[in-house]
Simulated scan of single mutants.
Amino acid sequence: MTTYRLGVLAGDGIGPEIVSATVEAFKTAADKVGVNIDWIDLPMGWEGIKQYNDPLPEFTTNALKDTHGWILGPHDSAAYPLEHKVKLNPSGALRHTLDLFANIRPAKTMPGIKSVVGEADLVIFRENTEGFYADRNMFAGHGEWQITEDVVVTSGVFTRKAVERIAHAAFKMAMKRRKKVTIVHKANVLRLSTGLFLNVCREVAKQYPEVTVDDYHIDAMAAHLVRRAKDFDVIVTENMYGDILSDLAGELVGSLGLAPSINANATVAMAQAAHGSAPDIAGLNIGNPTGMMLSTVMLMEWLAERHNDNNLEEIGKLVEQSLYQSLKDGIKTKDLGGNASTSEFAKAISERINQIFVN
């Protein structure tokens, strides 16, 4: 039987609490399904600074290369000492260093959670390495230059290679869902850069004739999400647009604090909730682990396909089903209007996992 090695980077703020709750739930599910998982704790964030004077120590990066994947807690890079602030934050550094080109962010209505757009079930594929994010689009250095005290120039980078691979990832996902892809761009103004993105995505679309394709300008797309989120299936876009749209979509279906994501390439994936570290409530045992748990569900689905192991997908389904049942039963953390602590919420999920197997 394969033993899967999964890295655990607890991070800052509420990170250690929500990551611990996540690991607890998945340990319960893995035990029920009969899958061996080694959970490998690795320093990141303030813990990395404390041990190695680095928020993402080389020790951690090297150790991750020997894992099947990992979960990344939130980091509080805004509070790091200046010498660390000027560098890529841990999340950005991992995406860049390990070429995690696909940031996959679903937005789906959940039982017991109020959605301002009614029913919705979509997933955004955000190209993760280029676009208008100056900290990720250069081999060395950053894509911003301050020409004078009053003038700053920033770059956006778009390559056929990067667009092709995120487009293929999006279309492959669409083939498993409702077979519809929406390309988001601004080619009416940024004709060369996002024009290349649009054109290459349309070229890739020809290889998936069963998939219906449409496209929208980024500003119109934001309005369409608010008005009719339920009509969208898979959305593919560049880095910054994807970041903005996925935060919007997460809030529309309930809360950004519930929003999951994974960052992946062809061989490895990282689970990372979309929200921040919430340092103001750190240590109070009231943080909501839902986003982190659902991100890890996504990681299990990715690993199941990568390693052709349906048991991993079963683990994810067990946790997801038990989490949704807990929400439906009114067991919620403070941010959702409930009174369950982080650890109580995790315990409720584990109890429901056990109940599923008893029944």
Rank of each mutant, 00 (worst) to 15 (best):
L323D: 09
V200Q: 04
V8Q: 00
E320D: 13
L299M: 12
L327G: 09
H307A: 04
F132Q: 15
L294E: 13
F232R: 07
P260L: 05
P106W: 09
P289T: 12
E203V: 07
L72F: 14
N137H: 09
E24Q: 13
G131D: 13
V153F: 13
T267D: 15
L336H: 11
S326Q: 09
L122A: 12
K114L: 10
L252Q: 06
S343N: 12
V184L: 12
N53P: 01
H217G: 14
H275K: 00
N288K: 02
D135K: 15
D243C: 04
I262F: 02
Y208N: 08
L122E: 03
L318F: 09
G143Q: 12
G143N: 11
S295P: 07
V163R: 04
G48N: 08
L196P: 11
Q207P: 00
A167K: 10
T182H: 04
A169E: 11
L56A: 08
A340M: 08
A274K: 07
Y133C: 10
R227F: 05
V151G: 01
V157I: 15
E17N: 02
G92T: 14
I49H: 03
A140T: 14
I166H: 05
T109G: 08
G287F: 00
P209G: 12
L42Q: 11
L72Y: 02
N310T: 14
T3Q: 14
I37C: 00
R95W: 07
I331R: 08
N188A: 10
R306C: 07
G112P: 06
G291A: 15
I71F: 01
G141V: 13
